[in-house]
Design a binder for these strands. Structure first.
Length: 219
DNA sequence: GCCCAGGTGGGTA
DNA sequence: TACCCACATGGG
């Protein structure tokens, strides 16, 4: 897939789909981390509700969450699912950030990106996707996060050939401008939810039909 | 009732 | 490297 084709895809995505605004732009990096952990394997709606429940009771800062009771965190975020596991993760990642990074993610986020990813991924509950979301929103050198929608849609559109996370990320990063990583990520998700659903091969109504190798109007 | 949702971590072959 | 599984609630 060429860069110009990727640009055309982005242009049409912007024209045809609203940009989702989960979390908005007012989150601190740490708040974003907690919100992203809550969003793992659940819907936006319930992730947001869980985040609001938590925020109503506790200040979303490492020094607070590191000392909070795991049970209380779990009870507040229950609605997001996987709540025991997520509560344990939130508490332990808060502790680590407090102890090893003085409660501040900023220095990590301004590192060179592969190094920053490595450090983030070494923390509990932060895998490749969560690290990439943090870097896409707050990193000095953004990365391209890949979730299930982005993965599926990218393979389908031919934006990526590799099924391996790291290889796919590099393929996508090579086709978009750094400043567009986050926007492209969110719009590909929106595409995956509305037009290009799993188990639904029909795509004649999609505005990307002619650019998709599986599109009915494609050559 | 069944399937899936903006994953991670631990395990097996 | 490439799958497999537990984790758990809520909505279609």
């Amino acid at each position: 897939m060429s860069v110009t084709k990727a640009r055309e895809i982005l242009k049409r995505l912007e024209k045809n789909l609203p940009l989702p605004e989960f979390g908005g732009k007012n989150f601190s990096p740490f708040e974003r981390l907690i919100a992203t952990i809550l969003s793992q394997n659940t819907t936006d709606k319930n992730a947001i509700r869980a985040f609001e429940n938590l925020k109503r009771k506790m200040v979303i800062k490492p020094e607070i969450l590191a000392k909070a009771s795991e049970k209380e965190i779990a009870s507040l975020i229950r609605i997001a699912g996987l709540h025991k596991q997520k509560a344990r993760t939130i508490k332990s990642v808060s502790k680590r950030i407090l102890e090893e990074f003085d409660g501040d993610l900023t220095p990590i986020l301004s590192m060179e990106k592969e190094k920053a990813r490595e450090v983030l991924i070494s923390l509990p509950g932060i895998g490749r996707k969560t690290a990439d979301v943090l870097l896409a929103f707050h990193g000095k050198h953004p990365t391209f996060p890949i979730d299930t929608h982005v993965r599926r849609v990218s393979l389908r559109l031919g934006l990526a050939k590799s099924r391996d996370y790291e290889k796919m990320r590099k393929e996508l990063e090579s086709q978009f401008d750094e400043k567009d990583f986050l926007k492209a990520h969110m719009l590909l998700i929106a595409l995956g939810r509305t037009y290009c659903k799993a188990r639904k091969p029909l795509c004649e109504e999609c505005f990307l039909n002619d650019l998709c190798p599986y599109g009915r109007k494609a050559k």
